[in-house]
Amino acid sequence: MKLIFRLVVLYLLFLIQTAVIRPQLDLVVLGLVIFCLHDTLMFSIILGVWCGILLGLVNPLHFGFHIIVLSFIAYACNNIRRFIYKYKSYFIGILIIAILFKYILSLIFLGAQQSFVSWILATLIILLIAIPLENLTVNVFYKQWKMQVTENSY
């Protein structure tokens, strides 16, 4: 059930990213990074593949590329968080690296990309909404887990 909720949230982010907002913001990557920093490795990989499939659907000639990139981001985020995920600044740092990683790989393998200036602009907007969205996600999905840990620790 937890996994389905996460899949639905990422799907909604994909719909918003694809159909509503212009210029396109990497909301899917943002959602993926937030979930992967909190969930298990298996969950993260599934979410990465799911996001890759979704992004591949609107870019059908390059289907498969996003599966590789986003599942790698998911895997890397989940492994990194054990070492450095303590403060919000790390979350922002990981997010920037993830978006930059996707941008560079798209530039290399897909040939065309949005200009660097518009990418910077989109990334800044993403960073602005990242912290509130992360807080919201943690409160909605992980609050119960936090309380359990607190109770157990006492």
Partner: peptide, 24 residues
């Protein structure tokens, strides 16, 4: 599973578009 998915992703990515489009 992660390695398998990466391999599968590479295979799909390098498939010709004639096969990719019906898949999607």
């Amino acid at each position: 599973i992660f390695i398998f998915i990466l391999a599968l992703g590479f295979v799909i990515f390098f498939l010709p578009s004639k096969i990719k489009l019906p898949i999607t």
